Amino acid sequence: GRPPQPKSVEDLLDRINLKEHMPTFLFNGYEDLDTFKLLEEEDLDELNIRDPEHRAVLLTAVELLQEYDSN
């Protein structure tokens, strides 16, 4: 089946190999997954995450988090 739900933002970023963005998220108040899963493209602009590939991966991760919630 699906991988288990990540336990933290750090756990999530670790899985998608984008842990380099951890300080950015923490500094901007994305300390838990409840906050993280509200992330949208405009937020990525504000966080200055410009890499299109990173953005795509992050937004996909957000969608997956929302799916875990609805099940």
Rank of each mutant, 00 (worst) to 15 (best):
G1N: 14
G1V: 12
G1S: 14
R2S: 08
R2M: 08
R2L: 10
R2I: 13
P3F: 13
P3M: 13
P3A: 11
P4C: 12
P4L: 12
P4K: 11
Q5G: 04
Q5A: 09
Q5H: 12
P6W: 12
P6A: 08
P6I: 11
K7D: 10
K7F: 07
K7G: 09
K7I: 12
S8V: 00
S8G: 06
V9L: 13
V9E: 01
E10N: 06
E10A: 11
D11Q: 09
D11I: 00
D11R: 00
L12E: 03
L12G: 01
L12I: 09
L13S: 01
L13T: 02
L13F: 06
L13A: 03
L13W: 00
D14H: 08
D14A: 11
R15F: 10
R15E: 12
R15M: 14
I16D: 04
I16R: 03
L18Y: 02
K19G: 10
K19F: 05
E20L: 06
E20Q: 10
H21A: 02
M22W: 15
M22T: 13
P23R: 10
P23S: 13
P23I: 08
T24R: 09
T24K: 12
T24N: 09
T24W: 01
F25L: 10
F25G: 01
F25I: 04
F25Q: 03
L26R: 11
L26Y: 11
F27D: 15
F27E: 15
N28T: 02
N28P: 02
N28Q: 05
G29C: 00
Y30K: 01
Y30G: 00
Y30I: 13
E31H: 15
E31S: 15
E31Q: 13
D32E: 10
D32I: 06
D32N: 12
L33I: 11
L33E: 00
L33V: 05
D34K: 09
D34H: 08
D34Y: 05
D34C: 07
T35M: 09
T35A: 14
T35F: 01
T35H: 13
F36E: 05
F36C: 02
F36T: 05
F36I: 06
K37C: 08
K37V: 03
L38V: 07
L38N: 13
L38R: 12
L39N: 02
L39M: 09
L39E: 03
L39Q: 01
E40P: 01
E40N: 15
E41H: 04
E41D: 08
E41V: 07
E41L: 05
E42F: 04
D43V: 08
D43P: 00
D43M: 06
D43K: 11
L44Q: 01
L44G: 02
L44R: 01
L44K: 04
D45A: 05
D45W: 07
D45T: 08
D45S: 06
L47F: 02
L47P: 03
L47R: 01
N48G: 15
I49M: 02
I49W: 02
R50N: 12
R50V: 14
R50L: 14
D51E: 09
D51Y: 03
P52V: 07
E53N: 11
H54D: 12
H54W: 00
H54I: 07
H54T: 12
H54F: 00
R55P: 01
A56S: 13
A56D: 12
A56W: 02
V57M: 14
L58S: 07
L58W: 02
L58N: 07
L58C: 02
L59A: 06
L59I: 06
L59E: 05
L59C: 05
L59S: 07
T60L: 06
T60F: 05
T60W: 08
A61T: 07
A61D: 03
A61K: 04
E63R: 14
E63W: 03
E63I: 01
E63H: 12
E63Y: 04
L64D: 15
L64F: 11
L64C: 13
L65M: 08
L65P: 01
L65T: 03
Q66I: 06
Q66D: 07
Q66E: 05
Q66M: 08
Q66L: 09
E67R: 11
E67P: 07
E67K: 12
Y68F: 11
D69M: 02
S70T: 15
S70C: 11
S70A: 10
N71K: 13
